[in-house]
Design a protein around this nucleic acid. Sequence first.
DNA 1: CTTTTAAATCGGATACGTTCTGATTTACTA
DNA 2: TAGTAAATCAGAACGTATCCGATTTAAAAG
Lengths: 139, 139
Amino acid sequence: MTVEEALQMLKEKGYKYTGKREEIIRICAEEKRYLSAKEIMERIKDQYPNLSFDTVYRNISTFVDLGILEQTELEGEGRFRLACSVGHHHHHLICTECGKTSSLSACPMNLLSVMPDDFQVTGHKFEVYGTCKECISHA
Amino acid sequence: MTVEEALQMLKEKGYKYTGKREEIIRICAEEKRYLSAKEIMERIKDQYPNLSFDTVYRNISTFVDLGILEQTELEGEGRFRLACSVGHHHHHLICTECGKTSSLSACPMNLLSVMPDDFQVTGHKFEVYGTCKECISHA
DNA sequence: CTTTTAAATCGGATACGTTCTGATTTACTA
DNA sequence: TAGTAAATCAGAACGTATCCGATTTAAAAG
């Protein structure tokens, strides 16, 4: 997903345009990594030094709801990244040090032949964790 | 894993026996469900009314480290259950309402033919989420 | 059985990520 | 340009989890 697509989606859904929203999305778009709210705050400080935590969290939450951002959790902290591409379901290999990701083509849900009928399935999570080359080298 | 096996493991590793530890394990053993620390506290109140949060969290953490308990996270809260059985790797279908689980035999890691060589894989998570029959009916 | 000692527990303070609140500002519309 | 609802702010509040120093206790040593 591109920054433009994300902004377009916001507009369609009736959300107002703000520079802060664009900047949050832009920051997430810059890297194929999961960022924490804190990291996003850090990077946005240059342009909006007085941005409040609430604004970041509230917007991130909206973006996740709309599918603009993907969310995971590392070390008790929410982490976010721009959704990869619309309508193309896949999973990630995630560096637990820096949040860097690599795409995995397979989805295990396709491979589960029998699904228990006593559960109404609502979602799933498949993530592979590891350490990326960069984080191994300067460890 | 049984309560006895868990206690045996603690002994082997040099941990002291305490009634509180046994009770925590026993509570987790009673159900095939993920419980929060709060829920464990609730259930242990009868026998140990003054049990401190710290004791529960510290012991749970020890148990997770030793592989006696399995951990996941629902709604920003750590959830725990007795590890299924020693040396038998599998995954779970989890009810997001009550934490009830159902076992899945397949592990997606076996099915990933190509593993990126720029990551040193350290772990993985595969969980299917849903709502169990009981939670659907009284919803 | 008594003493000893390190581990376990207590409970209260603290940390941290996140969310809420009420006042203020701002983007869009009429 | 004025009006309105949404967005933001700053700080308080929240919930989970951990840390702390003092006290108790399990179990090893005498």
